[in-house]
Design a protein around this nucleic acid. Structure first.
Lengths: 356, 356
DNA sequence: TTGAAAGCGCTAACAG
DNA sequence: CTGTTAGCGCTTTCAA
């Protein structure tokens, strides 16, 4: 059966569509009597306004596009859930745009990530979303390259775009970002305070801003404490549990090994935990480990991870509020910085090795 | 600046909008020469067709609504990622509708879950989605109650609805579901084969179909092996790590305790692992644990979880393909059953206690 | 091959 | 308070 429209309601109520529209949107006073008649009819026919038509004429859709790299990476659901909470309150609904996802062989496809982002950017604009938020992918690159940047900048002229936890340096897009350097400093300072001097750093990708910033924080903290940074103790290129295990194994297998490891995220830390376990090294007694991100899984391990909370939920919420303002045409600060917090749990303990 | 429309292109190309539309959709032959002229103009002006307008007249949107309870529960991103992969290939884009999400105080809001589902159902229909998939929430209830069911049935008359891993018994909606009972049997049989006789089952919610089915599988396997099921060893109402720890603690604190625990999901198993660790019980030497779902985190723990894979990615993929067929008006089987698989890892070992 | 014109369903002046 | 009417941007007959 053909869905019922405002015309159907109008006809049966002996009014014009304008009046129906008015009671639908409460956009102008309508005589109580006729209003009630119309409302009754709407219920009777289970009338559901066609949002497409409405959006077409109103020129706003209440839809947002959320572009992220990989929903199975537990960091993103955290951000998303905060975003969801606020966005819903503000009356938005959103498209989830995963630029990686998993194919039949169950393998992630990173190679086409940026291409996907471009596709989604266009698709979302065609769908007439009111705004777009981007996290991960090219936004994490220290030097995305002008083409990747230009594209987003171009998009931002048509629709508000907000970047999360990253940047596109050649553009002046709005963004919300945790202070990555500070987070790393917090973590490393914590280790130093515990008496550790031989500290390694593992994970991340050299080309990513977050990694560079965290490494910078690491170096800064070490330097301020007058501690040397050993090159062989900085192992990058990877963010997975598997990589964490690999990096840590390498570290722990060497003749001289660190007494503490600073990991670029929690997954790596979980991998490091596994490596330590494998070689029979007690954590935290013999080896301290600190993670980064504070994903829920940080409390699943034994022992539970000491880590740096990026306040991911908060970033998500902030994102929704900010994007809403941008959509409303209000001014928002170009950069909103979120303060990370050190969360001390069970993988760090005072240094107990031979006196230095 | 006003976005460019087919009219703008048409005018500048000295053709009618119909022709522009034709080259846009490749829906009828157009003279090569004029086609090229039009294509060039489109590029020149960065023309982006307005999907709203298109959908309004075509009566199809390429949009799907995906309703799930909680994106931060790692089971759902798995399903979603499989769904994403196929849906994208088929040209769909989807709204993520989380019915729980997290508020400012960082607490999940389960109480209004069903209400949210109803809201989203309506919202999605107004947005004119081509189809809806539902997982969790009311779909997991053994007796959802007629109102909750009627509503979905009603919706399904207007737009294809597909249920994942659950059912609404009073309706005859299409669904894709893992065989929960079989999965449980697999798990429990594995324990029995290892020589365990004292097996407990923890977690789940008594009112949920999945729990009932899994418990049924548990009982069936025990019965077939001639083993008794002790009432105090079946602890329900909960799906979290915290609950797992709590249940297992209770079990392990009693005078007589099981030598193996079958958990209704992996999070519970992780909790059980923690409980065992706390009381100094070695897993798997002194206590075997098996989980359910095989979320990625099942391999993060030490030792790694033996568990039942629900093939969540596959369910997601299947869902996309099936919904696409339904949208195309094709017939699909009312129920597609997915076979679970036992994944033996490190938390189960032969029984080594006193001879029975 | 191409154009004219009638929708798709709703909103928003404008007029009364 | 209410009705008329012109869009919103694209698709799709129906003719030519």
């Amino acid at each position: 059966m053909r869905p019922v429209t405002v015309y159907d309601i109008a006809r049966e109520a002996n009014v014009s569509v304008a009046t129906v529209s008015r009671v639908l949107n409460n956009t102008a006073p309508v005589k109580k009597e006729t209003r009630e008649r119309i409302v009754a009819l709407m219920h009777k026919h289970q009338f559901q306004p066609n949002a497409l038509a409405r959006s077409l004429s109103r020129k706003e859709t209440g839809m947002i596009g959320f572009i992220l790299p990989d929903i199975t990476n537990p960091f993103f659901p955290e951000v998303l859930s905060g975003f969801d909470y606020e966005a819903r309150k503000l009356g938005y609904t959103y498209f989830l745009c995963d630029t990686i996802s998993t194919n039949e062989e169950n393998e992630r496809q990173y190679d086409r990530q940026y291409e996907r982002e471009s596709q989604y950017l266009n698709l979302l604009m065609e769908k007439q979303v009111d705004g777009i938020v981007m996290i991960g992918g090219r936004v994490d690159l220290a030097k995305p390259g002008s083409e990747l940047e230009r594209e987003v900048e171009e998009a931002s002229k048509r629709v508000p775009v907000l970047l999360l936890n990253g940047n596109l340096p050649q553009t002046k897009l709005n963004r919300i970002s945790a202070d990555q350097k500070l987070g790393a400093q917090l973590a490393v300072q914590h280790l130093i305070d515990l008496g550790h001097r031989d500290i390694a750093a593992i994970g991340g990708y050299a080309k990513m801003t977050n990694t560079q910033q965290r490494l910078l924080g690491f170096r800064t903290a070490m330097k301020e404490a007058g501690l040397p940074v050993r090159k062989e103790w900085i192992l990058t290129e990877g963010f997975s549990v598997e990589k964490g295990r690999e990096f840590a194994s390498r570290l722990l297998g060497a003749k001289r090994r660190p007494s503490a490891i600073f990991c670029m995220n929690d997954l790596l830390a979980i991998g490091a935990l596994k490596a330590a376990h494998r070689v029979g090294l007690g954590v935290p007694e013999e080896l301290s480990i600190v993670g980064y991100d504070d994903i829920p899984q940080a409390t699943y391990s034994i022992p539970e991870l000491t880590t740096v909370s990026l306040q991911s939920q908060e970033i998500g919420r902030q994102a929704a509020r900010t994007l809403d303002k941008m959509i409303a045409g209000k001014k928002v600060p170009r950069l909103q910085s979120i303060m990370p917090e050190l969360v001390v749990r069970e993988t760090t303990a005072p240094y107990t090795g031979p006196p230095l």
